[in-house]
Design a protein around this nucleic acid. Structure first.
Length: 128
RNA sequence: UUACCGGGUGGCGCGAUCGCGCGGUAUGGCGCCGAAAGGUAUUACCGUGAGGAAAGUCCGGGCUUCAUAGGGGAGGAUAACGGAUAACGUCCGCCGGGGGCGACCCCAGGGAAAGUGCAACAGAGAUAUACCGCCGCCGAAAGGCGGUAAGGGUGGAAAGGCGAGGUAAGAGCUCACCGGAAUCCGCGGUAACGCGGGUUCCCUGUAAACCCUAUCCGAAGCAACGCCUUCGGGAGAGCGGAGCGAUCCGCUACGGUUCCCGCCGGAAUCCCGAUGGCGGCAGAAGGCGUACGCCUUCAAGCCGUUUGGCAACAAACGGCGCAGAUAGAUGACCGCGGUGCCGAAAGGCACACAGAACCCGGCUUAUAAACCCGGUAACGUU
RNA sequence: GGCCCGUUGGUCAAGAGGUUAAGACACCGCCCUUUCACGGCAGUAACGGGAGUUCGAUUCUCCCACGGGUCA
């Protein structure tokens, strides 16, 4: 499952400032409607709307190895949530790792991420 | 056996399922771009996919840009000698010094006898000195003048140590021995240097203080650079326009062995002159760090054998030929096995340090468990 | 990714090879005041870590750790 990544700093700032937030023990999820979704849809060869994802792992959490691994685990959890649920599209999603996430397995993060998406209205709770 | 010294290997393995980056092959009906050819998303399969330190950025190169090759200054680096190397501050060998019973380890290891500076406190005195003491003279005495570095005490350091001669008392003042420095000769060594002998001298420490000597270094770095956009682009010629006019403005074309102007260039972070090149521009300002190039499979490459060399290393032959991302690709989970710890067992827990970003050679730092090789000392046994 | 700086009491900071390491704010105690503030007096408290050079390092050199700046 492909997804587009956020790399511009101003989008992160915007998500932190204006986005809806939900925090689980090992993650913090920020959600903002993507104003550029329409434009990106035209640029996309498949002409479908996508969510743009930004992953944040602070240097405080660890070195490069730890941070890379944490990002992989979060990415894996996101993939599984998307595969198993109907997730709405057209949003900017910023997922920040908290220090507890480094010691988690991806199985542990799937329910957390799903819960966060449900609370933020990305996923309807009935679809299991 | 115990304690230690030096060097090296190695960086958990195998197999399922679901996923990721790159390359290739096929697919590309539906989707997207295109008039079409075609391209592309997609999907499937195959191949491939982090390190010994990828790290710190401490040195040295390659490569790229600065027009070309230079000179000088400033600045920086290094420092016994010989070699290795593309080069090095690295490596090897060796010399000297220091440490250890020893295997062995450590040393920014030139010059303080070219000059300048500094040496707090203590001490009489720190590169020159007379506080106590000793000796001589003057004096009734107190004390004064002079000589003296043997003795006292201070200090990291007090004029090399010790003995004898010498003297009023003393002093390398003289002599013997010892120690050190410079230099000459002989022998050994490629050399540093060592050994023996002669001559002269004995002068504090500090150069990771300034400095002197020798050698080396142009600067900046893939966020470089290429790239993209805008501005600028003389005179003279033609056309048009404005103005009474000098003249100005706009457009067009030509030209580089004319003139003129200019750029490189106030040469590149300081200075200097030289050669020359280039252009109708050069250049300036910006753009976004984006798209693409650089960018990554032919390399100072890795492995093995042989030869040369004490060694670092070199040569020849054979084989292999190997990541290329751009918020940055290797993860999740399961099974079997390995090693260690805990436990009576079942079993449980742990398996380090750590992530390429143009590429190499080193250094330094971080590293769990395990294994191998060589050696030393002590004790024991034969 | 490259290139440069910095680290001194709780905070901001000077110093520069040498006695006991300035100063300001803060803190604590005493005095003043009916009390607080202001003022006065006195006090506590520091050279990021490890090696080296030196008689002696906070200062000089090297290696780490941490914190910043800057470049397309």
């Amino acid at each position: 499952m492909k997804f587009k990544a956020i790399c511009e700093n101003h989008l992160f700032s915007k998500a932190y400032a204006k986005g809806k937030r939900f925090v689980t023990p090992s993650l913090a999820v920020y959600l903002l409607p993507d104003y550029a979704a329409e434009r990106l849809q035209k640029e996309n060869p498949m002409k479908i709307k996508v969510n743009r994802i930004g992953l944040t792992v602070s240097k405080k959490i660890g070195g490069a190895v730890v941070r890379n691994r944490t990002k992989r685990i979060i990415r894996e959890a996101y993939r599984r949530v998307v595969r198993e649920n109907a997730v709405k599209v057209g949003f900017l999603i910023v997922i920040a790792a908290r220090d507890r996430a480094t010691r988690k397995k991806s199985d542990d993060l799937v329910p957390e991420l799903k819960l966060a998406f449900e609370k933020l209205g990305l996923v309807t709770p009935c679809t299991k």
